[in-house]
Design a protein around this nucleic acid. Structure first.
Length: 416
RNA sequence: CGGGCCGUAGUGUAACGGUAGCACGAAUGCUUUGGGAGCAUUUAGUCCGAGUUCAAAUCUCGGCGGCCCGACCA
């Protein structure tokens, strides 16, 4: 797309009402807009990144047998009363409202109850299992304190998958498969090196432990202890001699780090399936409870984490797979020749299915180059009097700063 | 929810209780084009409501809103 057509503008100064790096950069670069504390809009560039993250997650969930659905965010109290979670003392961050007819209504803060109740209508026999159902859907959480830009918001898009298995063994098998899929996701979005599967507490649920995926970052809220050789970590909340022994970890191999929780997976046992009556009959006609698991990734937080971890003094640095565009074509100078050559290159790149943002604006060179750094697209390609003389295009890699001089064919190869 | 700081043009910032100013942006014109260009002209503001005072952006009270620390994060 042509940058002159993009309605968003970059800003030179940090917003006064943000202190987190993710919010400062994303707002300055025009990826998001703040509506109020903990509530943000995604603008064209931000939405492109969000969709790319979504598609990576979708591909990985489909690979392990996930079936995608879209449940409503309007929820009836009935289901939540059955599992004893409608009470404000049990779940304190509800957004609740009323129907015109007077009945209570909840805005989804999670979807365990509705998905389980829904499946009662479809799953009956041992032949129907196992099932892995997921969605990308909005969650509303009335946080007492929204914070850290888009890392902890009151409304956010989450991928939530729920597994339904016939026994513990079948459950565990999928649980491990999903853990692997999660690492694939974090690797693809550029965070593989710094993201660790982390043992955490089981909380109110049936299991001793759950697993979190924690990305090392100074801006993280969590403290974890990392064994970098074994590529595993343990959350501070369960960092005891007893746990270490169970996990066969040594204090001397562990390094304390701050980290951002970018995903979690946890066993739910029969907590919800019991309350909501999701059972199945085996070969002998006997009734058994379904074993459930839950697997979540907050898309906005993941996007924010990429910015927190990978950006530099010049601005954002998007990894290839999530960047809004592959190439930022920057036209410097306003001579007819520069205009023609850059327009032709723009058309050629489009024909080759390369996603390109073409900075065709009549702005100064300095402004355009600074904007290119801020937006963080992986390859910056300059067309100017200088490159015309050299009869090649100048390619600068955003992440490393490396500069290459290539002809059109070489440039297209580089992108594919 | 406890504590702290704060709220001024679209953005970022000044102003002792006494004329609301500067920069960026935006608009027009001319020049300029490899690291946030120059000149000229123009544009636009004190969160809301009460109170104190001759006079309030400034002081007081209430409300609303923002950031940070803590608690919380099923």
């Amino acid at each position: 797309m042509k940058q002159s057509q993009l309605f968003t503008k970059t800003r030179w100064e940090d917003p006064a009402d943000e202190t987190s790096k993710n919010a400062k950069l994303l707002i300055r670069a025009g990826f998001i807009h703040k509506e109020m504390a903990g509530v943000y809009d995604y603008l064209p560039l931000g939405l492109k990144v969000l969709r790319k993250i979504e598609n990576i997650i979708r591909e990985e969930m489909n690979k392990i047998g996930g079936e995608e659905v879209l449940l409503t965010t309007l929820q009836s109290p009935d289901l939540w009363q059955k599992t004893d979670r409608w009470d404000e003392n049990k779940v304190d961050n509800w957004f609740k409202t009323k129907l015109a007819s007077g009945g209570d209504l909840g805005l989804a803060n999670t979807h365990e109850e509705p998905i389980t109740a829904l499946l009662v209508h479809h799953l009956n026999s041992y032949k129907d299992f196992p099932k892995y159902i997921y969605q990308f859907q909005t969650k509303f959480r009335n946080e007492l304190r929204a914070k850290s830009g888009i890392m902890r918001t009151r409304e956010f898009l989450m991928k939530d998958l729920y597994s339904f298995s016939r026994n513990e063994e079948e459950f565990k098998e999928f649980y491990e498969k999903c853990a692997t899929a999660y690492m694939n996701i974090f690797t693809r979005v550029g965070l593989g090196e710094v993201t660790f599967r982390t043992v955490a507490s089981g909380g109110a649920f049936t299991s001793d432990f759950t697993d979190e995926f924690q990305t090392l970052s100074e801006s993280g809220e969590d403290v974890i202890y990392v064994d970098k050789n074994k590529k595993i970590a343990i959350n501070k909340e369960v960092y005891t001699d007893e746990t270490l022994e169970k996990l066969d970890l040594n204090r001397s191999d562990l390094v304390e780090e701050k980290a951002i929780e970018v995903g979690n997976i946890f066993p739910l046992g029969t907590r919800y399936t019991d309350s909501l009556g999701l059972n199945f009959r085996d070969e002998d006609g006997l009734l058994h409870p379904v074993i459930m698991g839950s697997y979540g990734i907050g898309l906005g937080r993941l996007l924010g984490t990429i910015v927190e971890v990978l950006s530099d003094d010049g601005g954002i640095v998007w990894p290839k797979e999530v960047a809004p565009f592959s190439i930022h074509l920057v036209q410097i100078g306003i001579s007819d020749e520069v205009k023609t050559v850059s327009e032709n290159l723009y058309q050629t790149l489009i024909k080759n299915n390369i996603e390109v943002l073409f900075d065709d604006r009549e702005a100064s060179a300095g402004e355009k180059l600074a904007d290119a750094d801020l937006l963080g697209i992986p390859f910056r390609v300059v067309v100017s009097e200088k490159t015309l003389k050299a009869e090649s295009f100048e390619i600068k890699k955003r992440a490393s700063g490396e500069i290459l001089y290539l002809n059109e064919t070489e440039l297209i190869e580089l992108c594919q």
